[in-house]
Design a protein around this nucleic acid. Structure first.
Lengths: 245, 245
DNA sequence: ATTAAAATTCCGTATTGTGGAATTTATTCT
DNA sequence: AGAATAAATTCCACAATACGGAATTTTAAT
């Protein structure tokens, strides 16, 4: 669109791709196919804004600190709740059930968002509530994708009985294979929940979302629909949070 | 230098400053003083490179994900951070408190690393956070060792009141004599921090590290211990940085 | 439906960015 | 050492590019 911006970004992309992180103007000209005088002009302009910086004594250029400054700033604002809310609203509307967003916190997870469906106004759990990490569909998906040493220590505390703990781990492996979890009556008698995990750009678990419904009123077809929708929404949130695809 | 790059960055800077993080083209035109058609053209070009992105349904623009992508890439390669991390980990372990690494960036410093102590898991400040240069122990040590003309201009902006500013300069001279700084409740009520500067081989300030602890729980002996450890660690990082070319 | 205001696009023009060539600086050879 | 060669950097006349006022389209209000 604007040639100089396109070309400037071409230089930036070349600098950021590949292992090499220090470039001479001539090397950049070679790599981008731009006339060398053009490369000089662009580099000078980019340097003015700290988008690239020159290493005094080798004359080489590298990416500037502005990327870190603005990158970290933007990263801070990737607030999972803000990102998730519109997606959860759509989800609640689609499935006509209450949906939750949880984040892990030591041995419990905390409900940080709840969207009530327009139809079913049965409020069971409220924002801020803490649920042991081994209870409920959402929490299980988080555990299933957490680093093993964390999970092990945590389960040691929450499930002291060895055989029971092993059985639980078996469940987690199954959850990890499938990518979602279903729980029945774990947190609240007579309800079921379908949960799916949310990841950040590194693949670290940031939280999980879940749909909660009355078991009696949920058919198999609906359950399948819930699974489809909740995994879809979770993936959408992850990708909005900056997961690399 | 290159007008379109300057103007594009003007828009980016406006978007990244201030709390507001979603902007309509007209608002950006108002704020930057650029003709509105120019703002449109620039935004379209920036969007092409993911430097800004448009929120579909509000038509507003925000910073794009490219900043996070390249910012984190560059951040991973920051020499000072690589060098400092093992030393900070040892420090956090020795003093059993959370330790920070900051680098100066115009009128603020940015937290680029935080190591939580195994014992005290009170997380107060997070990576990427920006703190005015006149606040906190770490920042004061950086100012104390910065070139006077930089410091003067900066303080003029941050502390408009003359007498107050002179008093602050007095503090900086004291910090420079001692080689470390102590702050009490400046950034966070009820905490204290001990900071020490990091230099490159030429003696230029690259950043500062600090230990943060709850004021109530810190005895005089512990404070002395913190001072000893933080200056020791800072010197170790400085000398390690001198060997990186 | 009508009008007004705001958002977005268009397009003739002047300004800006362009890039080949000249100049300066660094390196190698005699 | 100086000359020759190569690489890095700057210059500047020119035309392609980005410019921005005005026209058009969309949205909101009445």
């Amino acid at each position: 669109m604007i040639q100089s911006i396109d070309r400037a970004m071409l230089i930036i992309e070349v600098m950021s791709d590949s292992q090499k992180d220090k470039w001479l103007p001539a090397e950049l000209a070679e790599e981008t196919g731009l006339p060398i005088s053009t490369v000089y002009r662009l580099l000078q302009s980019l340097e003015l804004h700290n988008l690239v910086s020159q290493i005094e004594h080798t004359k080489q250029y590298e990416l500037g600190y502005k990327w870190v400054e603005l990158g970290l700033k933007k990263y801070e604002k990737l607030d999972i709740r803000q990102v998730a809310r519109p997606i959860l609203e759509k989800l609640a509307n689609d499935v006509e059930e209450t949906v939750y967003l949880n984040t892990p916190n030591d041995d419990v997870s905390i409900i940080i968002e709840r969207i009530d469906s327009p139809r079913n106004v049965r409020i069971i759990d409220s924002i801020g509530e803490r649920i042991p990490m081994n209870i409920g569909a959402a929490n299980k998906t988080m555990l299933a994708y957490s680093p093993p040493h964390n999970t092990d220590a945590l389960l040691q505390r929450l499930i002291p009985e060895e055989a029971e703990r092993e059985q639980f781990k078996q469940q987690l492996r199954s959850v990890k294979r499938k990518g979602f979890a279903i729980s029945r009556g774990e947190k609240t008698e007579g309800t079921l929940a379908v949960g799916a995990p949310i990841f950040d750009f590194e693949g670290t678990v940031l939280g999980a979302i879940s749909i909660e419904a009355l078991a009696m009123q949920t058919t198999e077809e609906q359950l399948d629909y819930f699974i489809e929708k909740v995994t879809e929404a979770a993936e959408e949130i992850s990708s909005a949070m900056g997961q690399v695809k």
